[in-house]
Simulated scan of single mutants.
Amino acid sequence: MSFDDDWAGIKTAAQENQTAMRLNQLDGGGGGGGGGSQQGGSLRVEQSDLAAVGDAAFSLHQRLDTDGDHAKTSTQAAGTAMKQDFALGPALTTVAEKWNEQVNTLLDACGHISNHLEYSKKTHADDEYWIATRFKFEQLDAGFEERAQH
């Protein structure tokens, strides 16, 4: 069976079951609310959630930094030693190089996540402090009440 035949069959099945799939509105059931405790599908993130993600990224970075290189030295040494007599030697060296590249990519990603979350936390705390020290909320409330009367 060709792709076109498969695709035509999938489209026909989807049209027959069209009432079962609704992508343009929230399901009336209990899903989609982060455990059912929030109404309207609101997304809410607490500082503790961000801190947990940042801590996990930092911990993963620390472990990868130490554990990611355990096999590199011995694999490269084996590849170099076998280069003369076996075709596997250069392949082992290539595997060690690719592994090292992948570990470094993961280290960069973990560091970026951890640093960004720390930066975001500090920036938001600074913003909160700036707002709290610059605004008098009584004046804002009075302004909103005055505007509501007109």
Rank of each mutant, 00 (worst) to 15 (best):
Q84W: 04
L43S: 07
Q76Y: 07
C110Y: 05
M1P: 10
G31I: 03
G34Y: 03
T93M: 05
D49H: 11
L50Y: 01
R44I: 14
G30T: 02
D27F: 05
K122S: 08
H61W: 13
A52L: 06
G35R: 05
R147G: 00
Y119R: 06
S74H: 07
W130D: 15
L26N: 12
T123F: 10
G79Q: 04
T105E: 12
Q102V: 07
W7D: 04
L43H: 12
E118G: 08
H112E: 15
M82L: 14
G68A: 03
D27Q: 04
T80M: 05
G111N: 06
T80C: 00
Q38E: 08
G9H: 05
G9L: 00
A125S: 15
E118M: 01
L106H: 04
H124M: 15
G36K: 04
A14K: 03
W99H: 10
A20C: 02
E118I: 02
N17Y: 02
N100H: 06
T19P: 01
M21I: 11
K83P: 03
A52C: 03
Q62A: 14
R44E: 14
V45T: 01
F3E: 12
H116D: 14
A142S: 08
G54E: 08
A77N: 08
F137G: 09
G40H: 09
Q102W: 13
G143E: 07
F3S: 12
V103M: 06
E16R: 05
E101P: 00
L26T: 14
F58R: 13
D5C: 03
D49Q: 11
A125G: 11
S120N: 07
N104S: 01
L60F: 09
R44C: 08
E118V: 09
I131R: 04
Y129H: 04
L92E: 01
V53R: 00
Q102N: 14
S59Q: 14
G40Y: 13
F3L: 09
E16I: 09
G111A: 02
L88S: 15
A91N: 04
N115L: 00
I131N: 08
A56F: 01
S42Y: 08
A96Q: 02
Q62T: 12
E145N: 10
A13Q: 07
G29L: 01
L60E: 14
G143V: 03
A52S: 14
V45S: 04
D108R: 00
N104I: 01
G30N: 07
E101L: 00
S59G: 10
D85S: 09
F144N: 10
G30C: 02
D69F: 07
Q84H: 10
H150P: 01
E101S: 12
P90N: 08
A13I: 10
T133M: 02
H70K: 10
N100D: 11
Q18S: 15
Q149T: 14
G33W: 02
A71L: 09
A109T: 14
G40R: 05
T93D: 11
S42C: 07
R63C: 08
A125K: 11
Q25R: 13
A125V: 12
L50M: 04
G54W: 05
A14V: 09
A87I: 02
K11D: 05
D108K: 00
